[in-house]
């Protein structure tokens, strides 16, 4: 493959997620502040989770649960349930990735995020060359990875200095709301989301902070019972 072709596919990946990457900044900042304030996890390790786990929602839940005294296996279990949605992206990308060299095939998935995966799945409908595809995914993946790291560490280091009156922690539920809305595409999604939200709140006070998992699984169960008018896409 020509290096100019690789570069242009890479840059296309960069551009495809650039706007979404801007959204990762306040989220990463808020996460860094959470990590800095944690009582159970040292700030350095909380910050490192951005590299080791690299999945914001689960990182927040992990620290949150450990801070509230949940046992380690439950904190990890919840984090993995939150990230289970990525198995779906893995399935959607598997055919494309099968044509990559082994190192790319097993290295690139580390960079998988909602944003990079969704953008790539859509783009790969037109872009069929495996070399272009892997450079595109690398560009998209790194474009999410970089601001996430910068924002995390700014948050960790600035943590104490950011006045509580800014209420930066509110950026976290806002970010989830912003991701939630486009994820609701079918009737079953809407029912599942409503049930999950309501049951989670109703489960306040359930031991071991199981509320989040109970809510999610109830939402999935009820959502599966709902018939969608059109074939699921």
């Amino acid at each position: 493959m020509e290096s100019s072709q690789a570069r242009s596919a890479f840059l296309e990946g960069v551009r495809a997620v650039a706007a979404l990457a801007v959204g990762a900044l306040p989220f990463g900042l808020a996460f860094g502040v959470v990590a800095a304030a944690s009582t159970a996890v040292p700030p350095l390790i909380g910050g490192l989770s951005s590299t080791i786990v690299f999945a914001g929602a689960s990182q927040v839940a992990l620290i949150d649960l450990l801070d509230s005294g949940a046992p380690w296996f439950l904190a990890i279990g919840t984090a993995l349930v939150i990230n289970a949605r990525m198995a779906m992206y893995s399935g959607a990308l598997a055919t494309a990735f099968a044509e990559f060299p082994t190192r790319w095939r097993f290295g690139l998935p580390y960079l998988m995020t909602d944003q990079a995966a969704v953008v790539s799945i859509l783009r790969f409908e037109e872009m069929t060359d495996p070399d272009e595809r892997r450079w595109f995914f690398l560009g998209a993946g790194l474009t999410m990875w970089t601001p996430w790291h910068i924002a995390t560490w700014v948050g960790v280091l600035a943590g104490g200095q950011i006045p509580a009156s800014w209420r930066i922690d509110f950026a976290i539920p806002l970010m989830f709301t912003a991701m939630l809305v486009p994820s609701v595409r079918r009737r079953s999604d809407l029912v599942g989301a409503l049930v999950a939200g309501i049951v989670t709140i109703a489960a306040i006070g359930v031991p071991l902070n199981l509320g989040l998992l109970i809510g999610t699984f109830t939402g999935i169960g009820v959502g599966m019972l709902v018939r969608d008018p059109e074939p699921a896409t």
């Binding site: 779906m88 939630l180 309501i198 902070n209 939402g219």
Partner: peptide, 24 residues
């Protein structure tokens, strides 16, 4: 079908917790 429902349900659960609860 279950995997497709993971994203909307888990995101709704976390968002709801963040907005409607405080300190358990």
């Amino acid at each position: 079908r279950a995997l497709k429902l993971v994203a909307p349900t888990v995101l709704a659960a976390i968002a709801a917790q963040g907005v409607f609860t405080v300190d358990g």
